[in-house]
Design a protein around this nucleic acid. Structure first.
Length: 298
DNA sequence: GTGTTTGTTATCAA
DNA sequence: CTTGATAACAAACA
């Protein structure tokens, strides 16, 4: 479940290995994976290079180089949704996705088999290096968009990011003061704050001592002060620890994140709260598993 | 077969 | 128009 810290970890790592590399070929094993027509998607990317890699919320944005005669750059969007992975390998160019069989499949190591089982697309670079897009559940997608499309997407779908000047206490007060919905659902809403998902919302609410079922408008300014600090603290710490691997997430080298053991409430239903020893409660809120301490969170 | 997992969007209601 | 609530998607596992 890649949220902001996991996507940011991938962004930073990929920046080091694929910037400036020329795309030699693109394979789409599953036509649903690219939101563009397959032929266009493949033809456009071939022989181009990635100029920059940015991120908005959980969305990765690869800027593709523009030819002289073109007046607008194109951008490759990558959304991992729940089970997407972007894995770069400098030596495993022979992996051919989930559709090959026979001798080729037999030659694979167990590690390779895991890597390739749900490969939906592959981008190969000149001079070595292959980027695998794996996605067991097939919620994730790749999409080429124009600069103006990208600006629209950013503007219409994403609120301010944690750890930026845009996410202020005044902003929080404003978006929550008239909301009757529970704070859990509001924090999951990408249009209000970009990048939080189920894990870090539960963790931030625990740190801020706020019960997830509280309505937005019921939360006092003093509590919002704490919530803002908690959100930034959790996100910063999770980035520092390269994200949380609960089941599917791995970084662009295929390695797990280190934040799992630092979780205070998520996935700890029934276990004792680290602070007060009373059992962590697990409920369903906003259609999501929600974990909190009934004693510490008011 | 049943319930559970979640990021996001569709859909419907008010 | 906004807001809210819920189902739906997809695949795997206990």
């Amino acid at each position: 479940m890649p949220e902001l810290p996991e996507v940011e970890t991938i962004r930073r790592d990929l920046e080091k290995v694929i910037l400036g590399k020329k795309i030699k070929s693109v394979i789409l094993f599953d036509s649903k994976t690219a939101r563009n027509k397959a032929a266009f998607f493949i033809n456009f990317l071939t022989n181009r290079q990635v100029v920059s890699i940015s991120r908005r919320g959980k969305l990765l944005i690869f800027e593709i180089n523009k030819k002289k005669e073109e007046n607008e750059s194109m951008y490759l969007l990558v959304h991992l949704k729940m089970t997407g992975q972007l894995i770069f390998s400098s030596n495993k160019e022979y992996l051919l996705g989930g559709h090959s069989s026979g001798d080729e499949a037999l030659k694979r190591s167990d590690e390779d088999r895991m890597l390739v089982r749900h490969t939906r697309s592959v981008i190969k670079f000149s001079g070595g290096g292959t980027l695998f897009f794996n996605d067991m559940r097939r919620f994730g997608y790749l999409q080429l968009v124009t600069k103006s499309d990208l600006e629209k997407i950013k503007k219409n779908n994403y609120g301010p990011e944690p750890l930026t000047e845009e996410l202020t206490i005044d902003y929080l007060v404003n978006i929550l003061k008239n909301r009757s919905t529970n704070i859990k659902a509001l924090l999951l809403n990408q249009k209000l704050i970009a990048g939080l998902g189920n894990i870090y919302v539960d963790e931030a609410l625990f740190l801020a001592k706020i019960k997830p079922s509280r309505s937005g408008k019921s939360i006092k300014r003093k509590e919002l002060d704490k919530l803002l600090i908690a959100i930034n603290e959790i996100i910063a710490s999770a980035i520092k620890n390269r994200g949380t691997t609960f089941n599917n997430y791995v970084d662009s080298s295929g390695r797990k994140g280190n934040f799992l053991s630092l979780l205070k409430v998520y996935s700890r239903g029934g276990e004792p709260c680290y602070k007060c020893k009373k059992p962590i409660k697990k409920i369903k809120l906003a259609g999501r598993g929600t974990h909190y301490c009934p004693n510490c969170q008011k």
